[in-house]
Design a protein around this nucleic acid. Sequence first.
RNA 1: CGGGGUGUGGUGUAACGGCUAACAUUCCUGUUUUGGGAACAGGCGACUUCGAGUUCGAAUCUCGACACCCCGACCA
Length: 423
Amino acid sequence: MRQSQLFTKTRKDVPSDETSKNAQLLIRAGFIHKEMAGVYSYLPLGLKVIKRIENIIREEMNAIGGIEMKTSAFQSREVWEKTNRWDDNIVDNWFKTKLKSGGEVGLSFTNEEAYSNILRQYISSYKDLPIYPYDFKEIFRNEVRSKSGIMRGREFYWKALYSFSRNESEHLDFYNKAKEAYKNIFNRAGIGDKTYITYASGGTFSKFSHEFQTLCDAGEDIIYISKEDEGKGLKMDENRVVVNKEIYNEDLKKDLGLVGDFVERKAIEVGNIFTLGTKFSEPFDLKYKDEKGKDNVVLMGSYGIGLGRLMGTIVEILSDDKGIVWPKEVSPFSVHLVRLGDKPETLAFADKLYTDLQNKGIEALYDDRDLRAGEKFADSDLIGIPVRFVVSDKTIAEDKVEVKMRTENDSKLISVGEALKNF
RNA sequence: CGGGGUGUGGUGUAACGGCUAACAUUCCUGUUUUGGGAACAGGCGACUUCGAGUUCGAAUCUCGACACCCCGACCA
């Protein structure tokens, strides 16, 4: 994309009503626009990032048998009454409205009921299972207090996958696969070394659920981690344990055989996987007949990731004093091509390089604006694309391009052919 | 929902109860510049969140509403 056509502009000043680092940087760099507290629009650059995160998740979900679908943003009263979750006394932060024809609808709040209700129509035999449908959708929560920029909003975009299994071992098998898939996702999103699989409360059907917690002071969660495991992230030995404060106590430590010093750390819950058991399949009468014709209740699991929160987390932990630093796989563009000077030869060289990149399928943001170098570099650093190519009168004199990584201070002058080997 | 704080051009700030609400930035025009947010000159842009009240006079004081931020509670 030519930057001259990108209508968003960067800002030097941080908006006075944002204190969180993620929102400040994302607004300054032109990725998001604040509509109201906890509600943000995604501008072209921001949408690019969301799409790339979405795609990583999609690939990893599909790799373990996930099937993508899309449930409606409207949720019906009847369906949620089956689990007694429609009642405002049970769930008090649901956006609901009346239909002209009478009756009520809710804006999508969560998806367990929707999936259970739909799948009831299609699950009847053991041959129909297991299945792993998922979707990406907007979720609306009437939070009393949203905060931390895009990390905890009234509207957020998430992925939810639900597993429908025949028995415990089948469920566990998938659960573990999902855990691995989640590791891949957070590694690819560039936050693997600060993310820990954390034991949290599990509900009725399982002692624990697993949360993916990323160490960050902007987080809302407190986790307990052994000193020797700090710094290991997702490479941590699976036999060792990190625990959410909500269940951490001496009895639990004894139960799990946790010894040594555990330290308290703030963290952001970037994902969770949860065994639901029959909590939803029972009220929805979600059963299948086994080989002997006997009815069995389906076992469910849920697997969620908030995409906006993940994006915010990446900004929180990877940015520096100059701006955002996107990991390769979630960056809005693969390369930031910056042209300096407007001599016809320079212009032609840069235009050609841009076309070459496009032809090779390398997504580039081409800064073709007639601005001074300092301003362009400042923008480039703020936007945070991992690789920067500079084409100027100087570089073309040697028939070369200057390449600099966002995370490094030094640049090198190399041939175009050499530069393209970065991809 | 409890507690605290803040609302002034697009953005960031200033202004004792008193003249045409100031400065910076953004934006527009022009000249000179051109490898780390350039310099100079000129210009556009705000009935100071909204509504009442006090006062000769309100951005400024009082009350209310709304919005936003922070702490806490809550968070499938």
